[in-house]
Computed example of a mutant assay.
Amino acid sequence: MRGPMALGGVMAATASLSLGLGLVIARRLTAPSRTRRFDLPIRAVEQDGDRQVIVLDRTHQTESPGEFTLLFPGGHWVQLSAEVLDRGSGRLARAVTATAPGFTPSADDRASWSGIYFMTPADAGLSAYDVAIPTPSGPAPAWRIDGSDSQSTRWAIHIHGLGSPRAGTLRGVQVTTDVGYTSLVVSYRNDGEGPRRGSGRSTLGATEVEDVDAAIQYAIDQGAREVVLFGWSMGAQVALQLAARPRYSRLIAGLILESPVLDWAATIKANCARTGLPAAAGLLALPWLTSPLLVHAVGLTGTIPLGDLDWIARAHELAVPTLILHGTNDGSAPSALSRELAVLRPDLVQLEIFDSDHTMTWNSDRERWRSTVAAWLTAKVTAD
């Protein structure tokens, strides 16, 4: 009897470990907005001719082609050029192109690598004013930025992703402003800028969508007659949900999706693989998000309908022209799903692939990104 009993004990322990891992993954995925980690040491700050360069450890991120930002504690930032300079074994340097007013980086500072290039509308050369959107969660701060036509009835609503501030969308706001759209850069519940609700946890777009829905109503009240939704990562998930609502069939004219989350199950698996876990471990989190018996242990008040957030399964519901911008090196939201959606809906989806990581297609090739978005918007306006 000892053999079967021992085997049963091992199986029970394995099941318990699996359940525990699934809970940990679900809690981390939905965790309330946290402060940024500053885990990249500045090795040296040098003068290279007439320019300043910052020496960093050589990593997959720091050697990525394109223009990026170093974020520092206290809200300081340094913008970096695309040029990568060799500094010997394990080190590289990148030239500084701009620095936050009054800030001087120094050796032994610690920073965070980021694709967020503009911290405020003013940094992006945009004139904005603050508005508060009345949402079901409470007033949600937003930036309103009028385009070249201040009376435009064409609006673009910019929706940031999970764990990212709304400033990350300013890369796209520059383009929609140039084309003449009025832009609304929104926040939503539990994103660190919008109103806090419940435990402060994310529902992966399932309830956040209602706050962005309120932003659409604000735009309508302000004279919008045509809306393009510009969603980043989880923000793309929100945009897809809104575009599928029948009441907006004549209002939402198009979607621009940057590094979209199209299927949460595949996305969770990809993030597990990115952190060194087996991709299949992501499947262990799904019951904790979808089961009424388990979801409260995660800290959520209700289940997340992940099946309703699968836009590969719902591809037939896509009804408006859609531009997708996605990086081949995206370790968070698999670009393979964007390719699949483009194959399923070639009548509506234009897919543009970049050599970049998650939400960093702009950074990898700014000029191509901007011209692609501008051309798509201009063609859509002409077609209308």
Rank of each mutant, 00 (worst) to 15 (best):
L283S: 14
L284E: 10
D308L: 12
S335W: 14
A273Y: 02
P287D: 00
N329E: 13
V320H: 09
L306F: 01
R345T: 11
L286E: 12
D347V: 05
A333C: 13
A281E: 01
A333M: 05
T290A: 03
L348P: 07
P287R: 07
A273T: 14
V298Y: 01
A279Y: 00
L277R: 09
I304V: 15
L283Q: 11
W288S: 07
D263G: 04
L294F: 09
P278T: 03
D263C: 12
I304N: 05
A342M: 05
H316C: 03
I324P: 05
A315W: 07
T303M: 06
P321F: 07
K269D: 14
N329Q: 15
P334F: 01
A313K: 15
L294W: 06
N329R: 15
L286K: 11
G299A: 02
S291P: 06
G276M: 05
K269Q: 14
R339C: 04
P287K: 09
A313W: 00
S335Y: 15
L337I: 10
I312H: 02
G302H: 12
A319F: 10
I304D: 07
S335D: 14
L348D: 07
L284D: 11
E317Y: 00
I324T: 08
A333P: 09
P334W: 06
D308S: 11
I304T: 10
S291W: 12
N271L: 02
E317R: 15
A285V: 03
I268P: 09
A319L: 02
I268S: 02
C272M: 14
Q350T: 14
D347H: 11
A265R: 15
A333Y: 12
S338M: 01
D347Q: 00
L309R: 04
L341M: 06
R274K: 14
P278Y: 07
I324M: 15
G282I: 03
A336G: 12
P278G: 10
S338Y: 00
D310S: 13
W288T: 00
L348H: 11
D330A: 04
L262I: 05
E340A: 12
T322N: 06
A265M: 10
L283D: 15
G327I: 08
L294Y: 06
A266F: 00
W288A: 00
L318C: 11
A319P: 08
P292S: 03
P334V: 09
P321Y: 02
V343I: 13
S291A: 08
L284V: 07
V349L: 07
V320Q: 08
R274L: 14
R339V: 09
L348R: 13
V295I: 10
L262D: 01
P321V: 08
L318I: 11
G331M: 09
P305K: 02
